[in-house]
């Protein structure tokens, strides 16, 4: 059996710098920064209130079944939009496909501060519900939106991408912290090489602009000091395809997935040596840290400019999780077919 190879044929991006790849690039080229005190919630109690927030995203335009919007939190909306953009960018045929997989990486979950408060609001003594489970039960069962769990379950992010884009291939939500998005791309490429899918929408989606994330970051000391972490949000999704299939349909090939690693340490460094790094630091200076979506976003920005040599994306998180990926320029055959 001929060896299968995974190539990148489409890019989708939603960042605080702009709700699309084009808008993000323009803002970066103009040298503008998108970080500012958070507006999505009142972050003033924290050591730093700076955040990178996505603005002006018309999610509705990208949702085939708009009824699902009410169930989609921010990161899920970003994921669906970025995935739809990647398919469009690749001119991939629309419609249900058993061979299109979805692999999205994300980190923690926003539990919905306002919804949780609303659940207790009707109780005679909301503070009692924090201590007494019988009181809590009454309040929650009367006052919490029954769909709460579905909105905040992390696997729903990749599920919604599959539902909206009718993708019935393998489907996973990777959660290796800040390394998750890049790990998802590595997994997607592996599915293709193994013959489990012919195409995969793979990348990261995250939103850390909420009190739960800020409280945890502050506890770790990440929001203090001269250059605090600037929690941000966004999504970066690439369309990966099996190389022969992509060539056969005349797809434009942006690059080929080379070595990748889900391990930290020496394998990571060896992989990145000799390759141009994706612009992670530049992105962070202008947009904040997109967490699981950060390394994929930097990779997308590197790929859109065209590759003359290999590019390496590396992601590492505070608990020690890591992932890395090498993208090679498309080879001669792929280049001339494009």
């Amino acid at each position: 059996m001929k060896e299968r190879r995974a190539v990148v044929t489409g890019l989708g991006l939603v960042t605080p710098l702009g709700p699309s790849l084009q808008a993000t690039r323009s803002t970066l080229a103009a040298g503008r920064s998108a970080t500012a005190p958070a507006t999505l919630f009142d972050a003033s109690p924290f050591a730093s209130a700076l955040a990178g927030e996505v603005r002006d995203l018309d999610a509705r335009a990208r949702f085939r079944v708009s009824k699902a919007l009410k169930l989609c939190d921010r990161r899920t909306r970003f994921a669906v939009c970025a995935a739809a953009m990647a398919l469009e960018d690749a001119h991939f045929p629309a419609g249900p496909s058993d061979d299109l997989g979805v692999a999205i990486g994300t980190s923690g979950s926003d539990l919905g501060a306002e919804e949780l408060s609303a659940a207790l609001a009707r109780a005679d003594d909301p503070a009692l519900a924090a201590r007494d489970t019988a009181a809590f039960g009454e309040a929650a069962l009367g006052g919490l939106n029954p769909l709460w769990l579905l909105v905040h379950l992390p696997n729903m992010t990749s599920a919604h991408v599959a539902i909206q884009l009718e993708a019935r291939g393998p489907n996973t939500t990777v959660m290796t912290g800040w390394a998750a998005g890049l790990a998802a791309i590595a997994e997607g490429a592996a599915w293709i090489v193994e013959g489990r899918a012919d195409a995969v929408l793979a990348g990261g989606a995250d939103s850390a602009v909420h009190p739960f994330a800020f409280a945890a970051f502050e506890q770790e000391g990440l929001l203090s000091g001269p250059s605090p972490l600037v929690p941000a949000e966004g999504a970066a999704v690439v369309l990966l395809e099996e190389r022969e299939t992509a060539l056969a349909r005349g797809a434009r090939i942006l690059g080929e997935v080379g070595a990748h690693s889900l391990a930290a340490g020496p394998r990571l460094a060896a992989l990145a040596a000799g390759a141009r790094p994706a612009p992670s630091q530049r992105l962070e200076r202008h947009a904040g840290n997109l967490l699981a979506a950060h390394a994929p976003a930097a990779l997308v920005l590197a790929l859109v400019e065209g590759l003359s040599g290999p590019v390496a994306a590396v992601a590492a998180g505070p608990a020690g999780e890591a992932s890395s990926l090498l993208i090679l320029p498309p080879d001669g055959a792929a280049r001339s077919a494009a």
């Binding site: 979950s109 945890a216 770790e220 998180g317 608990a319 020690g320």
Partner: peptide, 13 residues
């Protein structure tokens, strides 16, 4: 809190 909020932290640790 950071470990507890992120399922990936369990794997890494």
């Amino acid at each position: 809190a950071a470990d507890r909020q992120s399922p990936g932290a369990l794997a890494a640790r």
